[in-house]
């Protein structure tokens, strides 16, 4: 496979996967409806509490909750979905390195997750008069893809690790709220116990939310964008290793098609 074909393959794979996920009812519910419900809870809590000024913060945070959930489900179970569809073996034996097959799938999951952000912002604007002004529009245009890439690469690592567990769906069920908390989506990490802070630094969700938030509300998004992309490189390297390990194990044990 020539190097020139790689970007085309990534782009095609990503586009097909985005289209496929966008027609999947469960993804639509997770990316469009559930985040809006969480945004409503946060907005009513902030209004009834002492933070009526934090509604934009709530809309962005609730949108990011959805981004994480869709990435978690779409990426964490990517290999399981391929296995159930009966095409995992074909993809493994294809001449393309498997990591390049997996990358567009997890990037697409993070992209579909971004519907959440759009949904909660529009919801806030329509129902709660949340102003949609963007302080740094160009940096927002950089923040969104940086977040998608960061989450997509973490998703790829999850995909390759979770496939070793028979009950990967249980892990995805469990990892929603902890990451919401540790990423500071709706509650600043400074309110949590001190040991949570280093954990939050390792999550692209933390930096992605920070980048999008500061791009919209005001501040300095560039360090967060940089951190997000830096983590993406790290997670890609780790994922490349774990994917190769998974592929080797599956070939050795002839367990590719087994659930």
């Amino acid at each position: 496979m020539s190097r020139a074909a790689v970007p085309r393959m990534l782009l095609r794979g990503w586009a097909i996967q985005v289209k496929d996920s966008s027609s999947f009812g469960f993804f639509i519910m997770s990316s469009l409806i559930e985040p809006v419900i969480f945004a409503a809870i946060a907005a009513y809590m902030f209004r009834a509490g002492n933070r009526p000024d934090a509604l934009l913060y709530a809309a962005i945070g609730a949108g990011m909750l959805g981004v994480w959930i869709v990435t978690l489900i779409g990426s964490g179970q990517a290999l399981t979905f391929l296995r159930h569809a009966g095409i995992l073996e074909l993809l493994i034996v294809a001449p393309v390195p498997f990591v390049l097959v997996l990358a567009p799938i997890t990037l697409a999951a993070a992209t579909v997750g971004m519907y959440s952000l759009a949904a909660t912002l529009v919801w806030g604007w329509l129902l709660f008069d949340v102003p949609l002004g963007v302080e740094h529009p160009w940096l927002l245009l950089a923040s969104v893809p940086a977040t998608v890439i960061g989450l997509g690469m973490l998703g790829m690592l999850m995909a390759s690790v979770f496939v070793l567990f028979r009950h990967a769906n249980a892990l995805t069920n469990m990892l929603g709220y902890p990451v919401w908390l540790a990423s500071g989506f709706l509650v600043p990490v400074s309110l949590l116990p001190d040991w949570v802070r280093p954990v939050s630094w390792l999550l692209p969700t933390t930096w992605g939310a920070e980048a999008i938030r500061t791009s919209m509300i005001g501040g300095h998004p560039l360090p967060a964008i940089g951190a997000c992309l830096g983590l993406a490189i790290g997670y890609f390297a780790l994922a490349a290793l774990t994917v190769r390990h998974f592929e080797r194990l599956a070939r050795q044990r002839a367990s590719l098609a087994l659930a």
Binding site: G49, N50, L181, L192
Partner: peptide, 16 residues
């Protein structure tokens, strides 16, 4: 974790 999440959100919002 759901309870932890909403308890911390409650502390931050000052609701209860």
């Amino acid at each position: 974790f759901q309870i932890l999440f909403f308890a911390y959100l409650g502390r931050y919002s000052g609701l209860a």
